[in-house]
Amino acid sequence: MFTGIVTDVGELVRVEDHQGALRRLTIHSAYEAAGIDLGASIACSGPCLTVTGMGPRPEGGSWFTVDAAAETLARTTVGGWRAGRPINLERSLRIGDELGGHLVSGHVDGVAEVVARDDVTADEGEGGAWGPTARFTIRAPAGLAKFIAEKGSVALDGVSLTVNSVESDLFSVFLIPHTLQVTTLGALKAGDRLNLEVDQMARYAARLAEAREQGY
């Protein structure tokens, strides 16, 4: 379980395929190796992946490996990742940790697409001395739009965000300067694809409504 609050942006340094069904990813991180356990769960730009190896780096920080199975490669953007890609990282939630975003499982529901990016400058009265802000319009994949509600929560590439508006399969999110600076979302542009996880409460509420309509 995660919160959607990114704690490091790592770098994917190696991608290795094994018999077409498994992909091993090696990631460099600022996390201390001593704080990463074999078998631990780390959210990597959305998907929850299991640590299969780790160690310290001479220059500081750590490297770790995670394996992505066929289901992950088919349902997320991981299948298109290449070495050099920055990765939003979050270690799993511990009892007693602050829940700063919303409850995120790391189970990606589908891949969304950036339709438009509108940067808001100080001349427009926002951002100011704190840096630029940006409004993104996102298209939800088929079947997932019904789970996205105005003022509700979504996770995009592992980042917890509040939905500003919804119209059909399009929704918008507004990113503050801090989020643009400390996650990979600051580099987004129209046409980019994102791992989308809808709010778990919305998913359960929709399922309950469906069951009620069907009489069970």
Score class of each variant (00 low, 15 high):
G55A: 04
L103T: 11
T50C: 08
S41R: 02
D109C: 02
I87G: 05
V104D: 04
T52Y: 00
T50N: 09
S41K: 00
G60I: 05
T52K: 06
A40T: 01
E90P: 01
L38Q: 11
G55S: 11
R75M: 05
E113Y: 10
I42E: 11
I42W: 04
L99M: 15
G61T: 09
R82L: 12
S92F: 01
G101I: 00
F64T: 05
S45I: 11
G96K: 08
V104L: 04
H102Y: 04
T72H: 05
G101V: 01
D67H: 00
A74H: 08
D37C: 10
G46T: 04
T72E: 03
P58W: 05
V115R: 15
R94G: 00
L103E: 04
A83T: 06
H102Q: 10
E90F: 06
E98P: 00
G80Y: 08
E90W: 03
R85L: 13
G60P: 07
A69T: 13
D109M: 01
E113R: 14
A116F: 14
D97K: 07
G100Q: 07
A83Q: 15
V111M: 13
G96C: 13
H107F: 07
T72P: 04
A112G: 09
G53N: 14
V111A: 14
V111K: 11
V104I: 11
M54C: 15
I36A: 07
G101W: 05
V108C: 06
T50K: 03
E59D: 09
G55N: 03
P47Y: 03
G39I: 07
R82V: 13
R85A: 08
I95R: 12
L103I: 12
P47A: 13
A112D: 02
